[in-house]
Write a protein that binds this DNA or RNA. Structure first.
Lengths: 213, 213
DNA sequence: ATTACTAGAACACGAGTAA
DNA sequence: TTTACTCGTGTTCTAGTAA
């Protein structure tokens, strides 16, 4: 047991997963936060536990991680994989104040019609601003269908395309709308829906909502 | 330090990554190979190191892994990912004009020092703006180590944290810097580097560069 | 039930050093 | 130069037990 895994990962990073590498306990001890003696002892331990093959000499140590050691690392990898990659079908976010630009867009007929047709949403007037971890958010929707709401021009202004994705917010079918140019934080997303979230869920700023697929 | 990571992974598997879980030191000690007392002490330690939030009572303990703890686990995950999944991924982008906000940030001492220390980059004054497919970009870096450049305050202004990732641009070690608040298009990323790209590669606006890991 | 303190025992650390 | 042993010291363990 113990923290020998740390050392094993270190050795793996040094290339000992696939081939024999040659280094010294002094070098390791310098990159690790322990003495030459401790490194030496831990390597002996790792060998005793069958995690590595070890050929010491007066000119250094040749090390290769054994099948059992590889298995050990792969075990940890799988565990963490399950935790971090597999099932990110929902993320959490916090309600933020501000009407959001989307609030304005929603009211524009040309957009409004497309929200109904393409997203199946008769938008409540106003958007819900939610702060999320942007990378988690992108990972969540990166495999989803991107639905483009076409822009249009008036005499005075050009309204650009809006990228949108269908999501559920606290289980309620909604859509994230992403105008191309934005002026608020990257990690604040705008949600449109037929539901008035603030009323239905009694949301105040800072309250948590769940965004799922 | 030590082997607290083992316990952290255990807690994550029990669901403490996303929500608060309720269990007891006795239960943990049975699944772990140590005593109730040791588990109790290690949990206190984990809390002291900021890895978990912990609410003890006479009816058990409520535990949730903190952001710092998640970061720790993700770090290990990234390391193992790099070892076990071979990926030679790269995306392409187009150079855009504009000095970018990063150009300004780079010159600020508090950021500058961190670029050197945390990213190993002595930044050339000015950033390279590159237009990419944002989703491809996120997928590229989503398994990379997130490096946070801490914000700071002056009398007049608050400068927020900057999230950054090490990348290579046309093979040159660089970093993507993502200020929290931005005013340009989402799919334009800013690159800092010790190299003056425009000069070295004779880049004009619209020229293609390769971003790799 | 719990958590977690105290205290003595077991263990790990690293300076010195042999080989 | 190495690795790794001995051994004094410090750290971490768990049984007992208070709260």
């Amino acid at each position: 047991m113990g923290d020998s895994e740390q050392l094993l990962i270190y050795l793996a990073e040094k290339g000992a997963l696939k081939k024999e590498i040659e280094l010294s306990t002094i070098k390791i001890s310098k990159e690790f936060k322990s003495s030459q003696q401790t490194v030496s002892r831990k390597l002996v331990e790792l060998e005793k536990n069958g995690m590595i093959h070890r050929i010491p000499s007066t000119r250094g140590i040749k090390i290769q991680i054994s099948d059992k050691g590889i298995e050990k690392l792969r075990n940890i990898h799988v565990k963490l994989n399950n935790l971090f990659t597999a099932k990110a079908s929902a993320i959490k976010g916090k309600v933020e104040s501000g009407l959001g630009e989307g609030s304005y867009y929603v009211s524009l007929g040309k957009y409004y019609e497309q929200f109904k047709d393409k997203l199946g949403i008769v938008p409540f007037k106003g958007t819900l601003n939610v702060k999320v971890d942007y990378i988690d958010f992108i990972n969540l929707i990166s495999n989803q269908n991107k639905i483009t709401i076409n822009g249009f021009k008036t005499e005075n202004r050009t309204f650009g395309d809006i990228v949108s994705y269908k999501v559920k917010v606290n289980g309620v079918p909604s859509a994230v709308v992403i105008p191309k140019r934005t002026s608020h934080d990257r990690d604040v997303i705008e949600i449109i829906s037929g539901t008035n979230f603030r009323r239905k869920f009694h949301l105040k700023d800072g309250d948590e909502v769940e965004i799922s697929l």
